[in-house]
């Protein structure tokens, strides 16, 4: 029999390696955000508290401009709703994964981000590790990297000055690897191709700032259309 402590320790050791790329990416991006707030005239408490409570990169960047413009809470609410709409997709994909994780479920949902979603959704969690604790550590490690980066950036602001140009590519590289792993694992590539193809088409039509919502709607629509053939072909069981 295994004691609780052993399981927790093993889950942490299993989860940490997967979060290393995010450690690099989030410290850097978080610091960029903290510096941005710093030079926009906000105390480090703002990036620190917002990275703890909001914890959604693009929304936090947009929040800076919201705070600097005229007071309009309704517009702020609707804008952030649109920016973070992709979380709905993550939620639908994680309904079953998050089931049965007890009290940890609340934090797993609260701390869900692109990176934690991708890891929790793609990794085959080892058998001797508790899946709830594994996903919990992935989520909380990732958030702590972001909070550290944002706070440090907010405190040291413009003092940080070495050539980090291109370091943000670590996130792109990670998503490419996760996409590739999924591709190698799946028997049927329909969904992968729909995802990448329709996103590209929507990016070309709507441009970088407006393509996410049409991309998500068209992906959901086309996936609904191909449901019968996919289920018939045994791609989905």
């Amino acid at each position: 029999m295994d004691n609780e402590k052993g399981i927790i320790g093993r889950s942490l050791r299993a989860a940490f390696p997967y979060t290393v790329p995010i450690l690099a990416g989030f410290l850097f991006l978080g610091a960029t955000y903290g510096i941005y707030m710093n030079v926009s005239g906000f105390s480090f408490l703002y990036p620190m508290l917002m990275s703890m409570t909001v914890f959604a990169g693009s929304a936090e960047f947009v929040a800076v401009s919201l705070l600097l413009s005229a007071f309009d809470p309704i517009q702020a609410f609707l804008m952030i709703l649109m920016i973070n709409a992709r979380h709905l997709f993550y939620g639908v994909s994680l309904l079953e994964k998050y089931a049965g994780t007890g009290w940890k479920k609340f934090y797993l949902i609260f701390g869900m981000c692109d990176e934690s979603f991708s890891i929790n959704c793609s990794v085959d969690i080892p058998e001797n590790v508790d899946k709830g604790w594994f996903m919990f550590f992935v989520t909380i490690l990732n958030q702590s990297y972001w909070v550290c980066g944002a706070t440090l950036g907010g405190i040291f602001g413009s003092f940080i000055n070495f050539n980090t140009e291109g370091l943000d590519f670590v996130m792109t590289a990670m998503f490419v690897v996760i996409f590739l792993e999924q591709w190698l694992k799946e028997k049927n590539h329909t969904s992968s191709l729909i995802g990448i193809g329709l996103s590209l088409v929507c990016l070309i039509i709507f441009g970088p700032d407006k393509f996410m919502i049409p991309a998500m709607l068209s992906i959901a629509g086309v996936l609904a259309l191909v449901r019968k053939p996919l289920e018939k072909g045994g791609a989905v069981t």
Partner: peptide, 15 residues
């Protein structure tokens, strides 16, 4: 959707 979305979303995230 929960089963087929992840693959599509990984593609979306790359783009």
């Amino acid at each position: 959707l929960g089963k087929v979305l992840p693959a599509a979303v990984f593609g979306l995230l790359v783009i």
